[in-house]
Amino acid sequence: MSRIQKVFTALKQQGKTALIPYITAGDPHPKHTVNLMHTLVEHGADMIELGVPFSDPMADGPVIQRASERALLHKVGLTAVLNMVKTFRETNQSTPIILMGYANPIEAIGASVFADRAKTADVDGVITVDYPPEECGDFVHQLRSRDIDPVFLLSPTTDQKRVELIVNQASGFVYYVSLKGVTGAKNLDIVEVSERVASIRKQTNLPVGVGFGIRDAATAKATAKIADAVVVGSRMVQAIEASTEANLLSNVAALMDELKAAVEAANN
């Protein structure tokens, strides 16, 4: 059983929803990333989504684009990100790490080399935004043969037939993108999301995470009632962007506490 599956199984037994914060590796500076990851865990992160900076993040809104640009100023590429995961693992062997990024950094080293290095760094899952299932058969095979979970996005425009195709390739969990548009666009429509999540559950036993558009305690709470995991990205990156070096960790901790309380309130 993969680390991601273990966490979801344990949470399910306790009737709890996972909280998954997203940060971009190297933002605001590479020296902070591992500390930020530990802070996220100390303040309630059940898993961490770690963004791999890319020069052309087509599916991201301005907040996460700027995070990528800040990281790239310090030349934080895929190799540097994997090294950060390695360092994190020196003191944390339990929290699943899911890399999220774009295809080209993986293409640059090749799917099998990437999968080897991700395994060595002890990465648990990979979301590749611009690898739809039709185009990444070999990549999925390389990951799964090393017990790394390929995590796929489902969108409001994904029809039942495609949901079938995607859940057959995915493992760990599936990630429902709760609105049309880029990351951080606007608040989600909880009724619509709830209907879609219910419909996805009819087609798969995989846990369903929901993200894109969760901006505060209220949306986190509402989402936690219907999803197996709540993913918070742009809001987390905004907190990082608004911080100084002195209050970076405390600001992120405060936001995590607020979100964790909201998720736990939904579970009670």
Binding site: A59, A103, E135, S155, P156, T157, D159, V177, K180
Partner: peptide, 10 residues
């Protein structure tokens, strides 16, 4: 090929 985010596939 078609290397796009899921939202654009449809």
């Amino acid at each position: 090929g078609t290397f796009v985010a899921e939202t654009l596939v449809e």
